[in-house]
Design a protein around this nucleic acid. Sequence first.
DNA 1: TTGTGTTTTACGACCTCC
DNA 2: GGAGGTCGTAAAACACAA
Length: 272
Amino acid sequence: MDPSAVSFDSGGTRRGGGAQMLLFGGGGSANSNGFFRGVPMAVLGMDDATRVGKRPFFTTHEELLEEEYYDEQAPEKKRRLTAEQVQLLERSFEEENKLEPERKTELARRLGMAPRQVAVWFQNRRARWKTKQLETDYDRLKAAYDALAADHQGLLADNDNLRAQVISLTEKLQGKETYPSATTAAQEVDQPDEHTAVSGTEELLAQQLKDNLHSSGDCTGHGTLSSEEDDGGVVSDEGCSFALPDAMFAAGFTHHGAEEVQLANWTSMFWN
DNA sequence: TTGTGTTTTACGACCTCC
DNA sequence: GGAGGTCGTAAAACACAA
């Protein structure tokens, strides 16, 4: 605790401004050092009620040192620091935001302030800096979150599109074939306990789907399909296209056996 | 001029460190 | 236990719109 704060303590029991009102409004007079209860009269100025005209908000140190502001009869209201005082304090704060006793004393001497005032100013300045820092951190985190959320929404949309394509293609296949559809196999994957495969081909198809679903999300090596990762390290399937099936059907693909399995292969890759 | 919101100064309570 | 920190708050000073 700063000695000056102790020695000039108002002794008030209320918190904050209550004690402050005792400090500034409770009477008393300046001591021989030109301090009023720990606050130099040069900084306090004089009571507005006892002075003609109001002291300007920012005055120079020299002005503050003028006789007018040394009027000793006035218990004083709170005064703001001068521009010069704030400027020097700011510079000092930039160098080091903590205040060693020697530096506090030196600053107080140079600024014509009580050491306690310098300490309080640094406390408040650190609080303001912290608030600003929190705001900055919040803005940065929010921007990162928004970008991630947008990316996620894009992925969901891609996923929906691909699922729709799978359903469409499966229906096309069912229209041309009597073979069990990929949808049937996919349903089996969703509900593995309900083993509904009734033929060797169907079981093979289902197994193929399972294997693919449990493998990585890689979509390379299958026709024109490709994959890529964004530079944020988040796996994205935005690079995957699904151009093959249309071309496949256009080329007169109808069936069977290995081709069926291959379709299931393509299908399963986009089901998750 | 006045009401209202923001900033600044200052304090007490409480906590941590040596 | 003392020194110095943070935290929460009061109140003055200030800015500004209506």
